[in-house]
Amino acid sequence: MSEPVTSIRRPVRLEYDFTAGRAMSRFLLGLAEGRILGQGCPECARVYLPPRGTCPTCGVPAEEEVEVSPRGTVTTFCVVNIPSQVLVVPVPYVCANILLDGADVPIFHLIQECPIEEVRMGLRVEAVWVPAGELKATFESIRHFRPSDEPDAAYDSYREHL
């Protein structure tokens, strides 16, 4: 008797052309100019970043363009010790929720140029861009965030964004 067949390999490779959509497209074009563009909701006036085209709580189109600051506050974070399959950052590295000044929801990004043990909730950070000549309409135009040497934000200033 030969060994039973317990598995077969069936490699699947599918390619997709994703549509960024109008809102994301404007945001990415902003990054190519070194600007961070969110969208404001006409009903609740909250600013969403990255823009989603709609206000997720009101369910209405949110097309008003609002430029937000490249500086913000770390609301919370984690230290990742598992090497990523797609990210070329040595472990450990810090992923943080960053509430940019002028936005009402945090974005998720890397904190670098700072000893890991010094990253904390409330830390003030700023975007580090690729050199001006390399700016493109991709997320990678912002390399990461780093401490901006401002005093920490008070807990109460961001607790409602946790």
């Binding site: 960024a20 990415l28 598992i82 990210l87 990004h109 890397l110 991709t138």
Partner: peptide, 16 residues
Amino acid sequence: PFQPPVVAGAGGYFAP
């Protein structure tokens, strides 16, 4: 594409 280049798995999402 055009999502933040930060992929940390489910643990990375919930840890913060």
